[in-house]
Design a binder for these strands. Structure first.
Lengths: 150, 150
DNA sequence: TGGGACCATATGGGCGTCAATGGGAAGCGA
DNA sequence: TCGCTTCCCATTGACGCCCATATGGTCCCA
């Protein structure tokens, strides 16, 4: 219906309750519904201390990337280790919440709050302060990146 | 209809009400209507303490830059973190107002008033005093400082 | 040319809906 | 039985939707 709303965008911080649950932002849940995603796949980000969450397409995208690389290269080996060995399936409850497991806490440093960060075709779970610092660093570092004219 | 009305020009300062809303200047709303923009995309300016607001084309311009990089590279990852994770969707209410969220307040320093600044293909939200100072600085020729080397 | 009707914008606030959150109770496996 | 998960329902606070008022300017007409 809306051409742009079908992607994961923006960020929001929600609290973890006493049972270790946290609500996925309604906007993100709407994207999941629209894409008919029912089972979520989680894996560690390759750069940041964040957990990437998406549908089966997220896994497939990483697998294609692995397949493109030399299968005996250290890079492909490490990616496979992270993607296949570090990946976890996850479901949302009836209210659209997910359980914050130790797998997530250990890798991200999340304790009481989760920042949900849109990444277009998937979203990520961050420790709020870590996200803020990564944003500042990315903004300052951008000047050194190769800028290509439009 | 009018050739001049199809871009964002000039600036205006409006008050934030008790519910945290502020009217987008009618002239800017007219441009949005003419461009058939219904959902707004907001992003932190890369140089100034201002929030850039535009239609989907504003987002797509940044995404084209990301698409040119290796999708699994740290550079693309950081760009996506800024553009997808740092951007937010926003809608105007029936009276043409937008909600000034903490996301906007924290980055701009806006408290009680918002200065809307036209930037041709998009417009920006500024803290009035900060905008005034940036204008003075620009007149004194210091506007060249933020320009990044090619 | 001055007064007043008229209009568009900006602003204020009521109210219903929904998302986020909290917690009880039932089901299940160890 | 005990701990953990799943299902269900209650609360509340924010936001969207609606209507009312203020304010300043323009246009018309006497």
């Amino acid at each position: 219906m809306f051409g742009v709303m079908n992607r994961f965008l923006s960020n929001a911080t929600n609290r973890i309750d006493s049972k270790g649950r946290v609500s996925v932002p309604a906007m993100f849940r709407a994207v999941l519904t629209q894409r008919n995603v029912q089972e979520l796949y989680c894996l560690q980000d390759l750069v940041f201390p964040a957990i990437s969450v998406g549908g089966p397409d997220l896994l497939e995208r990483y697998e294609r990337q692995i397949a493109q690389a030399d299968p005996f290269s250290p890079e492909a080996n490490m990616m496979s280790l992270l993607v296949h060995g570090g990946g976890v399936y996850m479901r949302l409850d009836a209210e659209g919440r997910l359980a914050v497991t130790d797998f997530i806490r250990d890798f991200t440093g999340i304790t009481t709050e989760v920042t949900f960060v849109g990444r277009s075709d998937h979203f990520q779970l961050w420790q709020p302060q870590a996200f803020h610092e990564a944003q500042v660093a990315a903004r300052e570092g951008r000047a050194r990146l190769p800028v290509r004219p439009a």
